[in-house]
Design a protein around this nucleic acid. Structure first.
Lengths: 201, 201
DNA sequence: CGATAATGTTAACTCAGTTAACATAAGAAA
DNA sequence: TTTCTTATGTTAACTGAGTTAACATTATCG
């Protein structure tokens, strides 16, 4: 005479998992607690997910999708190439700051192995593609020489890692963005810094 | 008639903890396993450390120290300011790549809270100081105007986050450094990329 | 020597992830 | 409808982790 929950327990679990993850991160997310919170037996989640990694993978997939969407939106709205790179960087950091736990989940080592979750790998590849395309794309792509292509690729890597570094240091509290400036312009400022420029100092 | 281990169990534990951490990271480090490997009772570590965080803190402290030393060594050996920034970045990434688990430990969220381990906070501050000083220092510091100082600080942040981003993406396998080039020059290349330069593309 | 602190041991508690064995519900097949 | 099968839920158990309490032994210092 067990009380059965019907309807989409799976979705409810996912929903609650999102909540817990947002508040406490991947480590704080415990399947047992999740089950209790959902009002379901402690073994129930295993009927819907491939264990803890399974749930994390599902959450990571949707996180990747949102991430990719937001980057895409920015990429689509900025015409000028160099400017687009900059604004992509700001959006990249913006996502990380607004969703630190999700950002950590998709990039950190708590992320379930891509090999074991094909859909996760796909979501990850998609997100990277958005980034790479937006950063690499040029106005007259067909006319690119090999050297130019190599330069473009290197530039993509550089842009990517710069955004990533700022994002990481900010969400880890190592860099505290000035309060009198919005995050976007702060990031744009950092990205615009030219370490090679002469200082006169 | 228990077999007591004498001598510095504490140091042996730390040593083994280093080994386990290097191989499996903070999550893989289990106090019980550590105790078993050391041939000591499972509760013994608690006599020497403030639980798991205590051990992680101790390991993190020594990691910070090594990190700071290596950066310092580079900073001391490169005269030219801009060049020093670049080489510091390469050293930063070098440390991360050679000691990925330690790097993750000192920068990630597995790191015990700085508030609870004053020596850890000190070690962290020291490492950051080396970086900031080396990056901010100029030949004629006394003559710096306020504006110049602000610029220098911003540049320090930019340099730091660039190195950090490359380090993170490389140790997470998102960026794979080309095999036909040593890591240092690859990093220097990325750091030298000027996203603002015209491309002609 | 003898008291006291340091350090070790065993045993237990809580919580997590996971799985097995069982129960019920829903839906297709007869 | 009745029956078989599958999906989904439950309980109970196993393993392993972190931690603490209670107890034992050793070191050390008066």
């Amino acid at each position: 005479m067990g009380k059965y929950h019907h309807g989409d327990v799976r979705n409810v679990l996912l929903q609650k998992a999102e909540t817990i993850l947002t508040e406490e991160g991947p480590t704080g997310l415990s399947l047992r607690r999740l089950a209790r919170m959902t009002g379901v037996s402690e073994a129930a989640p295993y009927r819907h997910f491939d264990g803890k990694d399974g749930i994390l993978a599902a959450v990571a997939i949707s996180a990747f999708e949102r991430f990719a969407e937001q980057l895409e939106a920015v990429a689509a709205n900025v015409e000028h190439h160099e400017e687009r790179i900059m604004h992509l960087g700001a959006a990249y950091v913006g996502f990380a700051v607004e969703n630190p736990q999700h950002f950590r989940l998709i990039f950190g080592r708590e992320r379930p192995p891509l090999d074991q979750y094909p859909e996760l790998r796909e979501a990850a590849d998609n997100a990277f593609d958005v980034l790479q395309r937006a950063v690499t794309s040029v106005d007259r792509k067909a006319e690119m020489t090999l050297t130019e292509a190599a330069t473009a690729y290197n530039r993509a890597l550089a842009a990517w890692s710069r955004a990533h570094g700022i994002a990481m240091l900010v969400i880890d509290g190592m860099i505290v963005p000035p309060a009198d400036q919005n995050l976007g312009s702060f990031v744009l400022g950092l990205l615009a810094e030219d370490l090679n420029a002469p200082t006169g100092m």
